[in-house]
Design a protein around this nucleic acid. Structure first.
Lengths: 341, 341
DNA sequence: GTGAAAGCGCTAACAC
DNA sequence: GTGTTAGCGCTTTCAC
């Protein structure tokens, strides 16, 4: 196949795009061999200063850009890690990803981000695609990826899951917030404020929700109080919230901020003063909590730290660790006006 | 360099990772040539059924995965597009990206996502990195990328900006919400409700904010009302909001939902009934608006559509279009309880 | 200092 | 049907 004749044209603001220049083009332009170009571009000394300048000038003039894939192919490494998240619309995931990115950046690693959009099949496909793109490690910010997929991935590269999957996968590290402790903090906070009738509201029954429930029950038991759990399913949410508000509880711990804010809105509509008649706590410390009125007491899982920890686990695997690790990050209570008048 | 001896081991749940198998390994395992493996894996007919089965079985057994980079190198295309956003923590960006992704997926294109974290230098670096990874098109969900960077990128591949940059860059397509129309909708809504004293609140003076202001002023002028603009800088926000609430306005249009929710909270604190004493509108129709109390009237820019439109522009450039296009998406008013009792 | 040559994993043209 | 070969853009010995 004859090589397409390189046109002399290389306009900057032209729709007339030319073939992407390679080091061979730069070499020809500068009148040297292609290996010299490679060395010069990477700043290797062992290239004369004059030659190097000439090469760099040629590269700039031609608009040369390194082809990362070609380099990765020969070097056998890409310097990239993959981050696959359940749903980027959820700021929780976005902030964990942020933590991963920042930590990766300071390790000199790039990040490919993929969004599963809540579809397990798509999540699995993204995991596979990441491996296909030769990432050097994978952070899965999701509790919905099939363990088989994770195991297969972990057979090729370090994999760490952020969150609480239904089961742990051998060979896969994990990082999670200490849900039981977080719920305990919120419960103890309410108990300390003198509440005797504290209800727990959740829409989910997944591992994280179960752990939080456990923390709630433990704290109440320790104070000799009776736990009371309300399921708030997506359907009939309104009725379930009303039932909760009518239950006589003076405080409600919600499994997350969205649920809490929903209860808050309904309390307003029914004229229930918050926190005087009803104290409310959320979980996650999202923007929603910080901007609700009254501002919502919540539990901060330290999302960026979750992400940074995930990257640290990846790094230590890359450094040779072989035994599995499961990190638990202690959360923090953020008291606000929804509990403290 | 002698090739590392391929160990026979290929355990699934072992930390003992082996060299990644290539088509050569699969070929050896199946007792055929590597080209036959390549054909079989891509489902080319011209491979006997029995042979193909044997090859596929070998591939599965070895845990073979296609090396996307190697394929891209030889094919000259990656089938990937790049999406670079200002800040993924902002759900606006996340949802635009979502729209791009979905549209790309249905075109058979994969997506690399990169997060600029509000840093123009990092945004620029991501744009460059995307080109290095040989994406076939680039969507920049940001109004902060230097025009020179965009121009240089557009010289190599199709580039479309979502949002309102300070200046348009020749060779770069764009998609934006019709800010003036959106602000007009909100203003007309308030005017129709009988408000005579409508203030406009903004913290920004960037192009999008300026367009919204223009739409506001135009609508008020048409109704013979006097416009009144309040700047709410990040510093002294509280005082500025108080001044706004004390100004005698019966309605406030905020430049975005965050600002609106801030005014809303302060109104609650000062006992101003919303919407009876003060009507409020936001912009963006974020989750914040939908969950505030009372629920906030806002303007929906149709974020996923912005993203999908960006991808359509990319696709038509890839199809050969050379003249620039600038799409404007009409927004929609979402009336809620913060204006309508 | 500089250049020639081999090879990363894959595809595609062409022979057998 | 099947195998051989060249080559994508780059890095990396190894000679000169």
């Amino acid at each position: 196949m004859p090589r397409p004749t390189a046109s002399g044209h290389h306009g900057r603001v032209t729709a007339n795009r030319t073939r992407r220049p390679t080091i061979v083009d730069v070499a020809a332009h500068a009148g040297v061999s292609k290996s010299l170009v490679s060395l010069a571009l990477r700043g290797d000394d062992g290239v004369g200063a004059a030659t190097r300048d000439r090469i760099l000038r040629s590269a700039a003039e031609l608009g040369y850009r390194l082809n990362a894939q070609a380099r990765a192919l020969v070097q056998g490494r890409t310097g990239q890690i993959g981050v696959v998240v359940t749903d980027l619309r959820n700021p929780y995931h976005a902030e964990v990803a942020l933590g991963v990115e920042e930590a990766a950046e300071s390790e000199g690693l790039g990040t490919f981000l993929a969004n599963g959009r809540r579809d397990p099949a798509r999540l699995a496909a993204h995991v596979e695609a990441m491996i296909g793109h030769n990432v050097e490690g994978l952070v899965v910010v999701s509790s919905r990826v099939d363990p088989d997929i994770l195991a297969a991935a972990a057979d090729r590269l370090p994999v760490v899951v952020v969150g609480r999957p239904e089961t742990r996968t051998p060979g896969v590290d994990s990082v999670a917030n200490d849900d039981a402790a977080g719920a305990g903090l919120a419960a103890e906070h309410l108990i300390a404020l003198g509440h005797k009738d504290i209800a727990y509201a959740t829409a989910s029954n997944r591992p994280a929700a179960r752990s939080r429930l456990l923390g709630y029950e433990t704290a109440l038991a320790a104070a000799g109080l009776r736990p009371r759990v309300h399921r708030l399913p997506d359907a009939h949410r309104r009725d379930a919230v009303d039932a909760l508000l009518d239950s006589g509880a003076t405080a409600v711990m919600a499994n997350n901020d969205v649920l809490a804010v929903e209860c808050l809105g309904r309390a307003h509509e029914r004229g229930l003063a918050v926190p005087e008649r009803l104290a409310l706590t959320g979980y996650d410390d999202t923007e929603l909590a910080a901007r609700a009125w009254p501002r919502l007491t919540s539990v901060d899982q330290h999302r960026p730290l979750l992400g940074a920890t995930a990257l640290a686990l990846l790094a230590s695997r890359l450094g040779g660790r072989t035994e599995d690790r499961h990190e638990i990050i202690p959360p923090t209570l953020v008291p606000r006006a929804s509990t403290v008048p």
